[in-house]
């Protein structure tokens, strides 16, 4: 049952941006789009599942052509940000650094643009936990590792001026299906799903 819910959320997120874009495509024909050459978009967000991770990120988008852009997404996530002691287990630190690059295409309306990008890069995860149960000996354990980070990103920019509002969501395609075709591994994807809100600045 849990997996049906995961899949439903996955497809919902996948189709929402598409339907939003479809709504705007008629306006595109009227040639009233807003094309920025280079933008920089800092944001703050969440990885909502399974624990709330706080994400600080920046997106740089360079529109090579009207419908072709390259993007760079850098993020720092403070994982499990709001629950640091649980059953005498303290989270000493828990963070993820990620750098991804991607290629995307954009659809435009009068006041907004929608960019869909395929992203690929690397992430570095590191966390340390300490078991401090007074009944037992204190014990610490840590893990640090690098893994691929691949997925689809939808980025929405709202506003016509130099400064604009920015929203983006990232749908990871790792570990499922690139590392593992086992549908159970989707919980790894879900843990890296992010929703980010911020503002953007047009540089060029």
């Amino acid at each position: 049952m849990k997996f049906i819910i995961y899949l439903s959320i996955f497809f919902l997120l996948l189709t929402l941006p598409a339907s939003a874009a479809r709504k705007d495509s008629s306006e595109t024909a009227k040639n009233i789009y807003l094309v920025r050459s280079v933008t920089i978009e800092p944001a703050i967000g969440l990885n909502p599942y399974p624990t709330s991770d706080l994400v600080f990120s920046n997106l740089v988008q360079w529109n090579l052509k009207k419908r072709l852009s390259i993007v760079s997404h850098t993020s720092f996530a403070l994982n499990n940000a709001f629950l640091r002691v649980n059953n005498y287990i303290k989270t000493d630190y828990n963070y993820t650094l990620s750098q991804k690059f991607g290629v995307g295409t954009s659809l435009y309306s009068k006041r907004s643009s929608h960019t869909f990008s395929f992203m690929a890069g690397m992430r570095f995860d590191s966390f340390k936990e300490t078991l401090e149960n007074p009944e037992f000996e204190k014990f610490s354990a840590k893990e640090s590792f690098i893994s691929p980070d691949e997925g689809l990103m939808y980025s929405l920019k709202v506003g016509k001026k130099k400064h604009f509002l920015s929203f983006r969501t990232y749908i990871p395609l790792y570990p499922y299906p690139f590392k593992s075709s086992d549908v159970y591994s989707l919980d790894g994807n879900m843990a890296n799903l992010s929703l980010e809100f911020g503002f953007g600045i047009r540089l060029k």
Binding site: N79, N80, N86, N87, I89, D125, F127, L131, A141
Partner: peptide
């Protein structure tokens, strides 16, 4: 266990139990 099990309660007791 899985390397991505970083929800703040799996790793320390896992390794402590092994030890």
């Amino acid at each position: 266990m899985g390397q991505l099990e970083n929800s703040g309660q799996m790793l320390a007791p896992f390794k402590a139990f092994i030890q």
